[in-house]
Every structure is written in structure tokens, then in C-alpha cells.
Design a binder for these strands. Sequence first.
DNA 1: AGTGTTTTTTCGAGGCTCGAAAAAATAGGG
DNA 2: CCCTATTTTTTCGAGCCTCGAAAAAACACT
Lengths: 416, 416
Amino acid sequence: MSVGIRHDDLRRRNRAMVIAAVRRAGRPSRTEIAATTGLSHSTISAISSDLIGEGILAEGKPSEAGALKRGRPQVGLGLNPEAAAVMTVVLSLNFLSVAVIDYAGQVISEEQRRLDTLTMSREALIGECVAIVRRRLEDSDIDVRSVARIALAIQGITDTEARAMLWSPITPQTDIAFADILEAEFGIPATMENDCNMMAVALRWRDPERYRDDFIAILLSHGIGMGLVLKGELFTGTHSSGGEFGHMIHRPGGALCRCGRRGCVEAYAGNYAIWRNARQLSEDTEPVADVSDAQMRALAATARERDGPEREAYRKAGEALGYGLGSLFALIDPAPVAMVGVSAAAFDLIEPALREAIAQTAGGQHSKSISFDTEPNELPLIREGCAMRALTFVDQEIFAPGVQTKAGPAAKKNVA
Amino acid sequence: MSVGIRHDDLRRRNRAMVIAAVRRAGRPSRTEIAATTGLSHSTISAISSDLIGEGILAEGKPSEAGALKRGRPQVGLGLNPEAAAVMTVVLSLNFLSVAVIDYAGQVISEEQRRLDTLTMSREALIGECVAIVRRRLEDSDIDVRSVARIALAIQGITDTEARAMLWSPITPQTDIAFADILEAEFGIPATMENDCNMMAVALRWRDPERYRDDFIAILLSHGIGMGLVLKGELFTGTHSSGGEFGHMIHRPGGALCRCGRRGCVEAYAGNYAIWRNARQLSEDTEPVADVSDAQMRALAATARERDGPEREAYRKAGEALGYGLGSLFALIDPAPVAMVGVSAAAFDLIEPALREAIAQTAGGQHSKSISFDTEPNELPLIREGCAMRALTFVDQEIFAPGVQTKAGPAAKKNVA
DNA sequence: AGTGTTTTTTCGAGGCTCGAAAAAATAGGG
DNA sequence: CCCTATTTTTTCGAGCCTCGAAAAAACACT
């Protein structure tokens, strides 16, 4: 199974480590890198000299203006923005958004587009994605050859290999191998990511203090999604993107879910479920296709104003989320939670019932210590996650080739 | 965070890899090891020569009697049984069992003992464990100094550091740092493991073909426990042993569980729950302390014989397990399941309702492809797992010191 | 006994990291 | 304005480690 370490892997790994240290720290000095990586100064000096020679790193002022110190001033090492570029493609309900990002993580160019994903044909959907990527690539400011990777995120289930969308609520189409399609079309390596996983990745980069080793990002939107980081690593299912938190069963045989089953968490906490309950429709009522953000905000406003079916709908949502989280906590222990999406703005209405429900579950004893953040806008987060995901790939595969994070034959292909 | 690879780590890691290859393969030749580890013949030759010199490996006949081949015959490399020894301590309801195992994995000596764990005082419980270990250590056949590690398994919740039992159904006592106690008493490194996790470890060694990267071991006993292997690694919670599958909520506000909460899977599928339902007692009835294996077998026999409350009790158990598994599968995707424990012998009564329930959940589409094994006797499995766990520790820590499986500061201490 | 085949060991080459020492670059003080 | 203390960075030789190729070893077959 797991493979021995060959001698040349050593340099590759340590190169990757230096690049990662620079990406995390911003503009660290060689001394700082030596400290965080545990490698000697000589090694860091040798590696960074190589990397500068290859145009991957560039010298500059150090980040922390700890300027006024006695000795030789530190030289900051930063990522060379021109070393490469990546593209992010975020496909969500009725919305397609693309950005080109330089190697240092700055957005160079972007484009957004509304489209009717629910009714589009398979070909049209693929066509739109290909077309928007092509337009960005043909933008005169960008050197096509420098675009080293494309990361595409979609709401729904993707496979573990990050090649295909298996199922998505934003389209009736299934099993579209977006990653393969884009690779074939543009000759640029591409991956297909789950939107909630990208949210989690982004949170980790945004606030590594709070979101370090174990945390949960939950998307409260038309559907319910989850991104999970455990022991410092993104958690995915064994075959799919996993974490189908929204489709854990809250009440066996309960409310009708968009997925066709009954009693899922989403069937109580998704926008359509809150909407359905707020209008006092039966739990058997077919879920509506879309509820606008404005409608949801109005619903929340009414719920805050007076006790009534709207408030009760949010209570039920909180209860379902609470029991779901409780069951999750039974498996992984409690962890900080970030609530993302339009209903996160109504978290004040959700929280009481949610906490009460958690208290009834195995994670309950720590119920009070669990903390929630809210972030109403998921799109920037998803894009940021995609960007970091793509850049990390570039770091590892292009500039430190042959490194395998986990034992696996995939890396071997790249070497050949 | 993650630390660079120093030059001397290389040899350490590759030594560990060779030892692991030998432990997995039995009596592999040097050529075989080179093939499985991917290292060159020269390296394997050098490392194995070192290891033989240190008395860790020993030469012998090769395992596969591929004797009749043309060239120079292979020399088998095996673990030297006298290189070290480990002890396993399994503490379960009213039962304590200890074994001494040599470095090659053979049982040298064992002792079992009945005791009344539910009513014993904290001191008595600790005292019994210490005493039984001491007796084994003082057994004249065993060189005390060669015992390099003790692995203790208990039903219940342990901490991630594998130091303490936090809570267990077999005793009212909580937070006993067994690992620290045994270390202090005997000066031998010890770990505190969760019983179901050890079952999973054992299954992996017993049948690596079937139980490789992703599988689930479920203990159907008085309580319901789970051991989970994901992506080839034992899955534990972030703070505790995790995997409290039995206490996922099946029905909010439902049947009274032994843990004091309501609606847990265990409150429908644990022995006491099946017993309660079979006797048509209310779901609010306080769980009984123990149901003997004989009583459970009688119950199962009755259920097979005629339709009635017994059969219905097993049906409810299946339903609860099914929905629980379904929720789990929503998070991790379906995987092979091993049912272990006395009620695994009644799996024929459980399976129909279980499959039907899974079909109602997110994992449902693959419901038919999910396969179940049964193993009525959990004790040997737990002991085997403990033994392999302890031996693996010896492999890594004693004979290849300073290796860090995951990035972590702990290793730094060993280097210094 | 000789030949062919496969396994294992030997040996020199090439790389990598490390520690120590040297070099470089600046602030502060007289 | 020059010198010194201080801190960062580079240089250099030593010590390991793995690798590939070739040699040696050990047996089956003819």
C-alpha cells in the first residue's frame, strides 16, 4: 500500500513546504520560513534561491514592518504573481460566475452571468460554461499559457476524484464530467468541487485561528449543504463529495424533501421548507423551485415582528438543524460552526430551537460551548475557496512535481 | 504547522515501512518488500541487514512455498518473536481479559476473570486491572523488560489521546485515566482504546481484501457501538473516540435510552431495547442493567418461531439501525458493514427492516449493494485489534523512533 | 559439471540537509 | 562620520541516504 520515500522526494516535499509557508504567511523572511518549517537556514536558503531563480518566488519588503531592529533587515519572500494564474468557475442556481486569479491570489479579471439552469439542456449548460471560460481566456490581458488550473464549484454532489458532478439541485441533468470537458476543451487541468467544501476551504484561509483543525460550514439556502474539516483535512465521502448533511433523516417518514425522500433535514430547514411551513401548507406539498432572497428576507422580517406560522417555520428549521447537528456531533464531537447563506441572516430566529434540539442529543452536554458564526453571502466564499484550492494544486503539482500528499497512484501519472 | 522533512527522517520512515511490510506479508523476501514499498533492492538490503542485526527481523523460509523456481531461492524475512512483547487488556461488562503477545503476534499467556463491574468502586476497578497485569508480568515465562506496550480496550468513550476512559456503560465511574495509571504503575507505555475501534482494526488485519479502505464495524450488544475506517484510517472524533453511532437520534423525543436521552438508535436496537419491546413494555420503561446472551438467543428463537412482539422488537431494531446507517451513509457514502456481537446472530431478524429503512435514506439508491457480515463473538476480535494496535506502536516508536505519522510537535521531543 | 535464472549484496555516484563559520546589511553610539 | 553590536543570509565541507549497475550467491535443470 503505502510507498517508501525515495531520495528525490525529499527536495520536492520541502520545496512544496516552503511554497506553502510563503502562501500562508504572506511575505515571510527566510528566517521565519526556517522557523515554521523546522528546516535549517541553509536548506531554506538553497530552496528559496532555486524558487526565485525559477520565477516562483520574488524578494520584496517583509510583511511585518518590524523594520526598526538592530541587525541586517529581513528580506520578505512573496509569491510572484506572474508565476501562474488559475480560474475559478462557480455554477449556482441561475448563476454562473468566473474569475481569473494570479499566483499571489489577486483577482485579475471576472465575469458573471445569469442563466436559467433549471430548464437548460445538458448541452446548453456545458456550452455556457465552456463559452464563459473561453471569453476569459481570450481576454487580452491574460497570457493563456499561464493559466495552470481551473477549479469549478457546483452545488450538489461531486465524485471524490473531483472529475464530475453526479447530481445537483440546480439542474435536472446528472453525471456531467465538467472537469474532463474543460480539460479536453482547453488543455488545462481542471477539478470539479463541491460548493460547501470550497466554503470550508475559504474559511480556513480567511481565519485560520478560528477555523483550524475541526469545523463545520453549513449552507442555509434553498437546499442545505455542508463542508466539513476534520483534523485539518477536508472531509469527503468515500465515493462522492459526501457530507450530505441536508439529507440525514430528521423524522422517519416526515416532510417531503426535494430529493423525493421524506423527513430529511432539508425538508424542514431549506428555504422551500421554511416557505412551505410559513404558508401553513401540508408537509406533503411539492417543494417550490425557487424562493427569492427578497422573499426569504421578508419572511424573516415577519417572523421577527409577530408570533405566527412564519416564526414557527423558523423554529422547525432550527429543530431539524439541531437534531441533525446533534447526530453529527455524536460521530465527530462538537466543533465550531459557520452558517452561510441567506437564511444565516435569520439565524436569530433559528438559534433558540437549534440549541434546544442539540441539548437533547449526544453532543448536548457541550451545547452551550458550541459557537456559531454567520455569513449571509456564500458566493464570495465559494470563489475564494476555489481559488485557494486551484492555487494549492499549482503549488504542489507544477512547482514541486511528484509529491503525493496521500499514498496514491494518481501523482505518478503526472511524473510520467 | 506541518513540518519539513529532515534528512534523518528518511531512514526512520523507510525502516518503519519495511517493518510494516513484513508484518503485513508474513514472511516476505527482500524482493517482495522492494516491490511493495517501491524502494530499491539496495535500500531494502541495507535496511533489512540493519534490522536483522538489531534482532528485530529474522531470516527463515519464505511464506509462499514458491520453492520450485529456477534461480536462487528467496529468503523469507519474519518478525523476531523475541524482539518484544505487548499486553492486551480488554475490559467489558462483568469481564476482564488479559493476554501477553509476542512481537510476531502469537499469544504467549492469557488470563480471564469475571467481576461485577457495574457495582465495583473506582479503586476496585483500577485495582483489578493493575493486579491482573501484574500477575501476567510476574509469570516466569515472560521477560518483563521485553513488554513494550499495553493496549487496553473498553466499551464506551475514550479520549482522542488514548489516555483515559471518559464514560462507559459497564461502570458508573467516569474519567479514569487507565493509560496513565498503568504507565505509572509498570513504567510501560500504555494506551486506552475504544472496543469498537479495535474491532475495526482487527477486521482490517483479518481480511484486508474485504476490509481495506472504508468499512464499518457495528457492535450489537447491550449497547450499540461503532468502529469506522475511512480512507484507510481509523476514524475518531476530534476530542473523543467518537463514532457514537448508537446515540444518533433516530426519533426525536422517542424511546428512553440508557444514556438518559430519548430516541437514540440504541434505545431501539440495544439488547435492553429489544428486550423491552419484546415484553411490550412502554418505551419510557427504565432500561434493564443486563440481558444475558442466553436470554437474547431465546428471544431470537421465539421471534423466528412465530409472529409476535419478539419479531416486532427485532423489526424495530432493524428500522432504527437502518435509519442510523442511512444517515451515516449520507455523510460518508455506503461501505461494507460487519455486524458483531450477540445480536449479530439474529441478523436474519433484523436485516429486512434494516434494508427497508436504508432504502428510505440518502444512501438508499445503493441499498442492495451494501453487504453485511456477521460475527457473533466480539471478544476475540477486540483482543486481536488491541494486539495489532500495540504491536504497530512498537514498530513505529521503538524500532523506528522519531517518525511522525501525521505532522505534530510530539515527534520533536523524541528527536531531542 | 555446466548453464541459466533469480535473489541478494556490494560499490561508487549523486543529492540532500545540517552545522559552523563567514559575509552582508543595518541601527546606535561616541 | 566611523566603529561596533546585532541579526539575517550565504557558503562550504561533512555525513547520510538512496539508486543503478555489476558482481556474487544459490539453486534447478540438463
